[in-house]
Computed example of a mutant assay.
Amino acid sequence: MLEAINLHKRYHQGEIDVVAVDHFSYRFPAGLTAIVGPSGSGKTTLLNLLAGFDVPSEGEVRLDTTPLSTLSEDGRSEVRLKHMGFVFQQWNLIPTLTALENVAFPMMLAGLGLKERSARAAALLEAVGLGPRGKHLPSKLSGGEQQRVAIARALALNPPILFADEPTGNLDSASGARVVELLLHQAREGRTVILVTHDLELARKAERILHLRDGRLVRVEDLTPASAAVIPTLDR
């Protein structure tokens, strides 16, 4: 369970304090949650706080009962390795490694043996429809294929939480649709999938949408069938 409690992040710019996230609280359930808002609303800062890439000025992020801000930087890195997967807009594949080696890389960091990580990487590539492309370098793959490799890599250690930051931003519509279906499948499998996007059409495929404005959570849309007609408003 990932929970943000009164999360606040401010930055100092000269003598001015800039508030990027303003007392955000939310408990993320299993399934797909989309975070939307205009440019500068705090979406990426919030994701960085939730994942422990940054620490809050006030409040805390808890993974189960562990506040991430109480951990060292190495401790937060270990949490990310074991409990979180990441899919970014830029894919961030290692250009000198094949698709199979890219997917296996987190497993190497976690200490898995060569045979085990190679077998699991091959199975994950099959799962995202890229089994025959395992020996190809990223430069030999299309953008959509590279993003699917990135998803397979994010799933390498079977994390319960998956973050996706604008995962379809650099893709054509057909490739983007395939990536979205892969993310939806992970949500249906019981993972907590947190999607940051500016695309409202994409966001509406989620079970719930969190609307940010000026760093604040101003509205939560519940799109599950039982409560799709109920749209709580948190404007203040």
Rank of each mutant, 00 (worst) to 15 (best):
L200A: 01
K9C: 01
V103T: 08
L141Q: 02
A122N: 13
T33V: 05
T96P: 02
M84Q: 06
D222Q: 08
P132L: 07
S69E: 14
E15G: 15
E145D: 12
V180W: 01
R117K: 11
L2S: 06
T44M: 10
S175E: 10
V61G: 00
G144N: 06
N48P: 05
V19Y: 05
V19M: 05
D172F: 10
Q89K: 09
T168E: 07
E145I: 12
A34D: 02
V103Q: 12
F53C: 11
G31K: 04
K140V: 04
E181D: 14
L68I: 00
T65G: 11
A122E: 15
S57V: 09
R27T: 14
D22H: 14
P67E: 00
V218R: 11
F24Q: 13
V18K: 09
D74M: 13
R133N: 03
I151P: 05
T96V: 11
L162Q: 00
N48I: 10
V218W: 05
L212F: 01
A150S: 09
G113N: 13
F24Y: 11
A123I: 13
R62C: 10
K135A: 10
L114A: 14
L109P: 03
L234G: 05
A228N: 14
R191G: 06
K205V: 11
D64S: 08
E3P: 02
L71C: 00
N48Q: 14
Y11L: 07
E201D: 11
R80W: 12
E15P: 03
H185R: 15
W91E: 07
R191I: 09
S41N: 06
S41L: 13
N6A: 15
A99M: 06
G113H: 04
E166K: 08
S173C: 02
L202N: 04
I161G: 01
L234Q: 05
K9T: 02
L50N: 08
P95E: 06
A34K: 09
A127G: 02
L32W: 07
G37F: 00
R236Q: 12
A20L: 10
I5Y: 13
L71D: 00
M84S: 03
V19H: 02
S77F: 04
E58A: 15
